[in-house]
Design a binder for these strands. Structure first.
Lengths: 145, 145
DNA sequence: TGGTTAGTTTGGACTTAGTCTAAATATACC
DNA sequence: GGTATATTTAGACTAAGTCCAAACTAACCA
């Protein structure tokens, strides 16, 4: 592997290892990018950014994002019909999706659907509850189109 | 156009025209399929089904679904990261999405997030609120994988 | 009735997010 | 070091969805 040793961050390595994730250079590079701040990013954005500082392939980006997501380190946001966003903030919250700009942002106020778990369809268990509030840019002249 | 005249349904034509949609044979065929009962279907399923009784192209299926959705006759469901579902039931309700089977079903019980519209981000207006409850098939042995 | 125009449909090429695969590489463990 | 296991890789591939310019249809009117 021709990847220069990524500067070890104890936090990152510990965080990965605590989830049973072997901290390879590529995974650490992806994690460093994702966790440097809360953000909503697509696989492509992660690829473009992480590639600047580390050798990593597209397949590994997809593998790693799926792995992190499965392990609960990040969260998939299915809101844009054209792509998946990943959220490095895994605390419970919901999202705005602006259908004009294709951007995602956090909902600050509480929007907590109450769900009685015993009412789930037979043979299933709860995975997650996603609330997406779709927004449009407001138009001065609402009658257009 | 070599499409045999679709048997006119007064309901369907009225429904389309009431939304300012010109009831072409293709649109009527799509509408007849969609509205014969409440269902959650992908563009591909609509294409396969409608093609049995009418000559229609893939492009028209996509155009028509987008048009119906824009006009509020059907509703887009963004839940499966791989495809869009269309729901011919437009009354307010939310959805289960089974991530193991990729199927969508309606939530019967009320899951109504309370949302104060004045808290929306500046310059935006509400388009819709989507609640997707993700389910897994329950496993007898929950420790697997 | 035929001509003009506007709206709709079409096949097929194209785009693009994401997956797959088999080979190469890296790591762990004896 | 040698073997086994896990990870990464390039690049081919898939599939949902878009785009486009040509063909078709319908409406309107002289």
């Amino acid at each position: 592997m021709n990847l220069q040793e990524a500067p070890k961050s104890c936090d990152i390595n510990t965080r990965l290892e605590s989830q049973g994730i072997y901290p390879t250079a590529q995974r650490v590079a992806v994690a460093r990018f994702l966790f440097e701040r809360y953000q909503h990013v697509t696989a492509d954005e992660v690829y473009d950014q992480v590639r600047r500082s580390a050798n990593v392939s597209k397949a590994t980006i997809y593998n790693t994002l799926a792995l992190f997501s499965r392990k609960g380190l990040i969260r998939e946001i299915v809101a844009d019909p054209a792509r998946i966003f990943y959220d490095s903030n895994t605390t419970p919250h919901h999202h705005y999706f602006n259908i004009d700009t294709g951007t995602i942002s956090d909902i600050e106020a509480d929007v907590q659907p109450s769900l009685s778990p015993e009412s789930l369809p037979a043979g299933t268990e709860l995975h997650s509850v996603d609330v997406v509030v779709r927004l449009r840019n407001s138009r001065a002249a609402a009658h257009l189109q």
